[in-house]
Measured scan of single mutants.
Amino acid sequence: TYTFKVDNKDQAKKAAKWAKKLGLSFQIEKHGDTFKITVQ
């Protein structure tokens, strides 16, 4: 499981695209202005 934080929606979208490309499941949680992405 890999967790990282991004500062904006664009970065969150890029991370989601990357995870989908690799066939991984992911969750994006919004914490105020940051997004926490968990990829597994």
Rank of each mutant, 00 (worst) to 15 (best):
T1C: 15
T1P: 08
T1S: 13
T1D: 07
T1W: 13
T1I: 12
T1E: 09
Y2H: 07
Y2M: 08
T3Y: 09
T3A: 06
T3V: 12
F4S: 01
F4V: 03
F4K: 02
F4T: 02
F4I: 06
K5V: 15
V6G: 02
D7Q: 13
D7N: 13
D7S: 13
D7C: 15
D7E: 11
D7I: 09
D7H: 12
N8T: 14
N8W: 03
N8A: 03
N8Y: 03
K9F: 14
K9T: 07
K9S: 08
K9E: 13
K9V: 12
K9N: 06
D10K: 14
D10A: 14
D10T: 14
D10R: 14
Q11A: 13
Q11F: 06
Q11Y: 05
Q11T: 07
Q11M: 11
Q11P: 01
A12T: 03
A12I: 07
A12H: 01
A12N: 01
A12V: 10
K13D: 12
K13L: 12
K14F: 08
K14R: 13
K14M: 10
K14D: 05
K14G: 04
K14S: 07
K14L: 10
A15L: 14
A15Q: 02
A15P: 01
A16Y: 12
A16Q: 08
K17S: 10
K17H: 09
K17D: 08
K17A: 13
K17N: 09
W18P: 00
W18A: 03
W18Y: 05
W18N: 02
A19V: 04
A19H: 02
A19I: 11
A19P: 00
K20Y: 08
K20P: 00
K21G: 08
K21S: 11
L22C: 15
L22W: 09
L22Q: 08
L24H: 04
L24F: 09
L24R: 03
L24A: 03
F26N: 01
F26P: 02
F26K: 00
Q27E: 09
Q27V: 13
Q27K: 13
I28S: 03
I28W: 04
I28N: 01
I28R: 02
E29R: 08
E29Y: 07
E29V: 11
K30V: 09
K30M: 08
K30S: 07
K30F: 06
H31N: 11
H31Q: 13
G32I: 03
G32N: 07
G32F: 05
G32Y: 05
G32W: 04
G32P: 02
D33L: 08
D33F: 07
D33T: 11
D33E: 11
D33N: 12
T34K: 13
T34W: 14
T34D: 06
F35G: 00
F35V: 03
F35Q: 01
F35M: 04
K36W: 15
K36H: 13
K36Q: 13
K36I: 15
I37L: 04
I37T: 00
I37Y: 02
T38R: 05
T38H: 06
T38E: 03
T38N: 03
V39A: 02
V39Y: 05
V39Q: 00
Q40R: 13
Q40A: 12
Q40I: 12
Q40E: 09
Q40M: 13
Q40K: 12
Q40C: 14
Q40H: 12
